[in-house]
Amino acid sequence: MSIQEAPRKAISRLSLHRTRWGLLISAIFVVVVILAAVFAPLVSPYPPAAVDLLNVNSAPSAAHLLGTDALGRDTLSRMIYGARTALYGPIFVILLSTILGVILGLWAGWAGGIIDAVITRIFDIVLAFPALLLAILAVALFGKGLTAPIIAMSIAYTPYIGRLTRQLVSGEKNRQYVSAYQVQGFAPGWIATRAVMPNVLGVVGSQTTQNFGYVLVELAALSFLGLGIQAPAADWGNMINEGQSALVAGNFLPAMIPSLAVVLIVVAVNSIGGWLSDKLGDPFA
């Protein structure tokens, strides 16, 4: 296991999918977070940037259910708006890396030979860079914000999907049904995309949900470092960073609540991914 693989493994073990209750609670939690993100303006009690200078670093109260931070902003409201960026980033990264990974993996696995060798080597090179490092590099080159890190992380996560797809496809192409299509005169490209690809997508899909947790943690880390979403926009990683000053002032809630939220959402998404893997028979889970 490489140094980068270690935290990945550790994160992927955070899963409750083997117990029925764990799975149910995870699913409910994910749904609640998604609903909160979608309907943020309706459900949050205050605008995320509204400052209540009379209640700075306050403990939970009727007015502020989860208290306020060092600037007097309502933690609950910021959590709800923060859920938007927390989900938005990983969803984009997962979509982009899955599309790219499936295309390249399918091409490599199906064509074999020199194309396979070149694509696989490129995957290996990309895998040699920690995703976070690539994202920081992209921020340095293209400026702060969410776009550059999302593209960088998508590229960094492509090899995980690509290698899995390639492995599944190169096993699948020796199956008899592929020969049967060939004998009937179907074009190789048709067989690859219309027959083989649908047969591997189930397993690939379950892998992508596992990646969701890692991406979320890494994007949160990026914005904790001040390189992702910029203040005053609410973001969980950002909030942990800003919570540090409240922590010094003796108020641990503004830092702890977003930290807890990151952990919980990762566990919940992993649980659903693990359940999907079990259902779809991921051979590499």
Partner: peptide
């Protein structure tokens, strides 16, 4: 060429559990 060959020669494989697309 592909279609011409297919219309002349067809093949049935050993294991019907493998040779049909399961979906």
């Amino acid at each position: 060429r592909r279609l011409a060959r297919a219309s002349r020669v067809q093949m049935v494989f050993q294991d019907p559990y493998q040779s049909l697309d399961s979906r």
